[in-house]
């Protein structure tokens, strides 16, 4: 586990209830700059909810979420600004279907950062190049494969030059043969030092890329550690059971 003086993400005693359903029951998590944290856990355990609290797509019941020194749920915080610091990559991609690929990527820079279009286009093309899709700049999302869509979505998030990237099961909606190309891009980002929090079922990827793996179950972090220890000597019985199920799936 990395230690650091100024954490990139700091979550303290986070609680979240939907109606009577207490989904998060006190999450504490500190993520250092450049750290790659992978979150695993059974369906419905609150992984997505926890992740969505890191750029305030959910309102929280109590606790604190601090991203790069900004208290996300403090009414004085400019939430639109802070959201640009934490990009989100969704399972369903959520590309804008009425815009071509390049416009998907440049919308944020042009409208939020007021970057002149020519400069935004240059930046957008460079990012598409980076995810291997420069030749698709003029295509529409409907004309892309799932893996290509997800890579465009990553480029769209990167266009805001975020300090953190959040991934919610980025490869779960993909055909198996398209998973690799997306993981490839994520691996490259990790190597560049991007701070990432990734919810995924890709255990091989977690083992290889993560600095730390976290097991969430019943709204709490039940176990965490560097991947070797985490996967080879899991202590929590529910984690052992979960890993057994995933391995044999």
């Amino acid at each position: 586990m990395k230690t650091c003086e100024t954490p990139m993400i700091e979550i303290r005693n986070l609680h979240k209830t939907f109606g009577k359903n207490e989904v998060l029951r006190g999450i504490d998590l500190t993520v250092c700059p450049g750290e790659v944290v992978v979150i695993i856990g059974p369906s419905g355990s609150g992984k997505s909810t926890a992740l969505r609290c890191i750029n305030r797509l959910e309102e929280i019941t109590s606790g604190k979420v601090i991203v790069d020194g900004h208290d996300l749920y403090d009414p004085a915080t400019d939430i639109n600004y802070v959201r640009t610091e934490a990009g989100m990559v969704f399972q369903q991609f959520n590309l804008f279907p009425h815009m071509c690929v390049l416009d998907n990527v440049t919308l944020g820079p042009i409208r939020v950062r007021r970057t002149p279009r020519a400069e935004a286009d240059r930046l957008g093309l460079a990012l598409l190049e980076k995810v291997g899709l420069a030749d698709k700049a003029a295509a529409y999302p409907d004309q892309l494969s799932g893996g290509q869509k997800q890579r465009v979505a990553i480029a769209r998030s990167l266009a805001m030059q975020p300090k953190v990237l959040l991934f919610d099961e980025p490869t779960s909606a993909l055909d198996p043969e398209l998973v690799g190309e997306v993981l490839e891009v994520m691996r490259a980002l990790a190597l560049e030092g991007m701070t990432m929090v990734i919810v995924t079922h890709e255990m091989g990827f977690a083992r290889e890329v993560a600095d730390r793996v976290i097991f969430i179950d019943q709204g709490r972090i039940q176990e965490q550690g560097p991947p070797d220890e985490f996967f080879s000597a899991p202590k929590n019985p529910r984690l052992r059971e979960f890993l057994g199920r995933v391995r044999h799936a």
Partner: peptide, 8 residues
């Protein structure tokens, strides 16, 4: 959500 996530 995607729109809000890029800061719009």
């Amino acid at each position: 959500e995607a729109g809000r996530s890029i800061g719009l």
